[in-house]
Design a protein around this nucleic acid. Sequence first.
DNA 1: TAGATTGTTAATCGATTAACAATC
DNA 2: TAGATTGTTAATCGATTAACAATC
Lengths: 214, 214
Amino acid sequence: MPYVSEKNLGRLSLYRRLLNRLQAEGIRNIYSHELARMAGGTAAQVRRDLMAVGSLGSPKRGYSVRELIESIGIFLDAPHGEGAAIVGVGNLGRAIMAYFAGRRPRLSIVAAFDSDPSKVNRVIHGCRCYPVEDIERVVREEGVNVAIITVPAREAQATAETLVRAGVRGLLNFAPVPLRVGPDVYVEDIDMTMALEKVAYFARRGGAVEEITK
Amino acid sequence: MPYVSEKNLGRLSLYRRLLNRLQAEGIRNIYSHELARMAGGTAAQVRRDLMAVGSLGSPKRGYSVRELIESIGIFLDAPHGEGAAIVGVGNLGRAIMAYFAGRRPRLSIVAAFDSDPSKVNRVIHGCRCYPVEDIERVVREEGVNVAIITVPAREAQATAETLVRAGVRGLLNFAPVPLRVGPDVYVEDIDMTMALEKVAYFARRGGAVEEITK
DNA sequence: TAGATTGTTAATCGATTAACAATC
DNA sequence: TAGATTGTTAATCGATTAACAATC
């Protein structure tokens, strides 16, 4: 399987969503420059990205929407679907659970954890909430490989360590602190404060600096 | 004022947060390699980033924590503070309002908008909720320059256009669609689906690919 | 065929990393 | 002074962009 960079991968995820919309509209074929316009990139970049997943375009008809969705799926998705855990069922945690609920059958949140006894054992957005003491047991039992961290900053590092100990190898971190984990664990940070400060800064400076996928 | 890239700027935002914590602990000076370890980067990179804001380190004592916080602030913050608007007061919108509520005096959410009449005119997390019809009026009156978009995907583009018409020059977009705006408007996308798919992919591939600020 | 698009290679660009003299 | 750290320049790296022959 070929190597793709993080940026490539992000764009593939975006392309798939756009392609799904096109398919729903009954569109069967698409040229690289059309997809580029929708995604906010260049045609050459789209072609390069698609090459990475083994694209099969033709100069006459461009790419088959159906085939692209399929090959991106083979590339991106786990063969038999994947279940994620979420730790921290506060405002943000619940919003994220609602966001992902019933959206992607191949990548869904299958277990939630919180230290607050009043939240434990309830079912929130269709997902059972366990006490944090059960992280290791449930993660192992469910074979969970990725987790979302939405706990307060001061608990984030300990939470990450518990998850990694239980076998998690990918973390999506919403806590505004860098996590220290081993090199075999992939961490993606979503730092909303940083994002808003960036927006405010560049808005003052007069916009520009086209951002495609970041 | 010197130019900094988006990545530079993001790291500055992170450094400031780390420095604030150090200051609270009574630490007065710090070396580049110490800050680098906390932020997950290299000492050389930290020095380069700090140079951009006019750092004044000394080989003997490193950098003054107080001075760094001050010069990053001068660089990052609007001179007289800045108010942001948020459009879409659903689960995610409310969570984000809670997240930013009372946290940063220099960058706070001052107005919320929703099309649902049952939400309009209520005060949510200390912030008044207006009908979307009032966006142009309120944004102009409050001098709002940046906005957060948490509306459903199909409404995102129209929302962005309304905001830009009202004078907004920076958008933080949580809707999973690329926004088409003029080159004088800065857009930062936070795409949670893409983020989770990336984590799942690289977790399967066996982690690695150190991410510092993304 | 003619013409637009594809796959692929070469040139460009920008950011990170390495190196090192200047400094306290 | 000796030694670690700083500011700054040069080398490296990787990704994007431009170019173009091959294709339908």
